[in-house]
Design a protein around this nucleic acid. Structure first.
Lengths: 143, 143
DNA sequence: AGTAGTTGAATAGCATGCTATGCAATGATA
DNA sequence: TATCATTGCATAGCATGCTATTCAACTACT
């Protein structure tokens, strides 16, 4: 039996995610942001002052990945680190004014990219699509 | 208005694709394969002897990305390059016996990973999901 | 208190993906 | 045919993501 990539959820998910990332990258590049930085900002715009460990949990990436992303964000003036008052091992990550100011244009860019992807979808299809993705994510995290 | 990542198609697509890639990686690592190598093999198992340019078209990655993947596949004894008889610039990419022999175990690994992801889906939901992903891909490639 | 285990982060090394360049082989055209 | 544009590929440089390892700080237990 042939394995047909166009019928493989994993293959399609990979292709789709690359197109989302490329599209987002084009849109947020003028803001000086990269996709993983944007994803990290999404968490920090909601809850400033998280630790690296908490960011890892919220975004489900490996600790080493987040450590490197934070290095680049610090380099780019998006975050600063403060010593955690209760735990000498950890730091809290705080947004700079620059990062706070990027919230509206950056989220608007992401909304635009989502709109391009879902342009031909009905309102119902959009809800179904998000639900199916969340369920696939939950299945893989469990299994 | 807050941008909620759990309601963003792009965010969910990225998360889902990472989980697919991680799961696939675990399964094919014992075969000595990495995800991008597997993706490239999918194209070559179907049509051996493609050029780099043709692989780029079929998999929708950048030429430079494919060039690097092919370097690693050649290093790992999965492909060999032959001079193109009609065009001195290009080569045709051919599978080794080793790569041919990996077809069944590797595609079985991918099927298993897909099954984990879609475990809770009805047959109808699976078809809908694949269709929605194909449509999102088409929209982004067009727009 | 002192030792052992746990936990938060950093670092090394590698795969994938991208953009930007450069180069050689082809092709098209004056 | 000589020149210019196009095309196929390689390379450099960087961002993301992973696994594996190390280190220091905290916790728990004897």
């Amino acid at each position: 039996m042939t394995f047909q990539k166009e019928r493989s959820a994993g293959f399609l998910a990979n292709h789709m995610a690359r197109l989302f990332a490329n599209g987002l990258q084009q849109r947020i590049r003028p803001l000086g942001l990269a996709p993983a930085q944007f994803m990290t900002l999404l968490a920090l715009w909601d809850e400033d002052g998280l630790t690296q460990r908490e960011l890892v949990q919220r975004l489900d990436v490996e600790q080493a990945t987040m450590a490197n992303t934070l290095i680049r964000m610090e380099r780019d003036g998006l975050i600063e680190r403060r010593l955690h008052p209760e735990d000498g091992r950890s730091q809290s990550i705080h947004l700079t004014a620059k990062a706070v100011g990027l919230r509206e244009p950056a989220t608007q860019a992401a909304r635009s990219q989502n709109e391009v992807a879902l342009a031909g979808f009905s309102e119902d299809e959009r809800l179904v699509f998000l639900d199916l993705m969340r369920r696939a994510i939950a299945s893989m995290r469990a299994g």
